[in-house]
Design a binder for these strands. Structure first.
Length: 311
DNA sequence: AAAACATGCAGAA
DNA sequence: TCTGCCTGTTTTG
């Protein structure tokens, strides 16, 4: 369940291993049959993420728009170039390896089990489960399952879809201008800032984990109304989001503890319970002051905060 | 085996 | 504010 960083990594991966190649597009599950026919056989030009949405552009100009929602995931098979930091751990520029990788819900290497005879798995592999879309080159297969959105858009529709989203610090060309936009959108509203950070039309890519962690790092009470948050504080939230997102894209994990040294970070990579200040820590002591972390609903999502540190 | 749970969002009311 | 939907993993009985 991807926040922005995961989708950026998917985009990198698809561009790297399928970009510039003609791809067979199919819908083994059948629910995307018409869309698949429209794209089948075209050259995949590039994949890009804006917030949590993935846009895959094909030679005709048509764009596959995918939103993973809560449960969606991409499984990659065959030649999958290791990205830095992720499950496909390997040094940068290492030779390509054959393996299977899941991106979307706790990125991980898939069990690569040879069959009973110990022979190599066949390529391309049979689709397993409900595969909505398969993108296949001669050497790489990407299977998409469980997306909340999956559709083909023409160029104008794709531009409109991007236009509906707030700025994403990983794609925006002018960080300072984007900062201004976000400051304006937050401070104009009489809605809790914790809710505004999750609003993809205000700023793109922030999910429940990043929301909780950004607000803790700013020591800001999530219930503060947008219009009550000082301009400089909103700007600092945007700046911090840019930092956390870049870090998440690089490492493939959401580690927000700026109190950890290199060893601590390496440990947090292996132990998810060490990654966050407050997210998922309801009832546990605040790592700064020891006050029990609160969890409560905000707009039907779980909000984690330290009632003592965040004011 | 069944239930609970999850990093999300659209649509209805 | 509420419900419904998508899928896989973890927890519970």
């Amino acid at each position: 369940m991807p926040e922005g960083h995961t989708v950026h990594r998917v985009a990198q991966q698809l561009t790297l291993d399928l970009g510039g190649r003609a791809v067979a597009v199919s819908s083994p599950q059948g629910r995307f049959a018409a869309g698949a026919r429209r794209l089948d056989g075209q050259v995949l030009l590039r994949a890009e993420a804006v917030g949590k949405q993935l846009f895959v552009t094909f030679a005709s100009g048509d764009v596959l728009r995918v939103h993973l929602g809560l449960y969606g995931a991409w499984d990659l098979h065959g030649q999958v170039t290791p990205l830095a930091g992720g499950a496909a751990v390997s040094s940068l520029g290492a030779p390509r390896v054959r393996r299977a990788v899941r991106m979307g819900e706790g990125e991980s290497a898939l069990p690569w089990s040879p069959d009973a005879e110990g022979t190599e798995p066949v390529f391309p592999p049979e689709p397993v489960g409900q595969v909505r879309v398969r993108l296949a080159s001669a050497t790489t297969v990407a299977d998409l399952r469980g997306p909340t959105a999956c559709e083909v858009l023409d160029p104008d529709q794709a531009a409109a879809a991007v236009e509906r989203l707030g700025p994403d610090p990983a794609t925006v060309d002018d960080l300072a201008a984007a900062r201004q936009v976000v400051v304006a959108r937050v401070t104009a509203r009489g809605v809790p800032v914790g809710q505004l950070l999750m609003d993809q039309a205000v700023v793109a890519g922030i999910g429940n984990i990043y929301r909780a962690e950004l607000l803790f790092r700013a020591r800001l009470d999530p219930w503060t109304l947008g219009r009550q948050v000082p301009t400089g504080v909103v700007g600092a939230l945007w700046d911090d989001w840019a930092v956390l997102l870049a870090d998440g894209i690089r490492t493939g994990a959401i580690i927000t503890r700026d109190d950890l040294d290199a060893d601590g970070r390496a440990h947090a990579l292996l132990d998810p319970t060490q990654r966050h200040w407050v997210y998922g820590r309801a009832g546990l002591p605040c790592r700064v002051c020891g006050t029990p972390v609160l969890v409560e609903p905000m707009a039907a999502r779980k909000l984690y905060r330290c009632p003592s540190c965040q004011r």
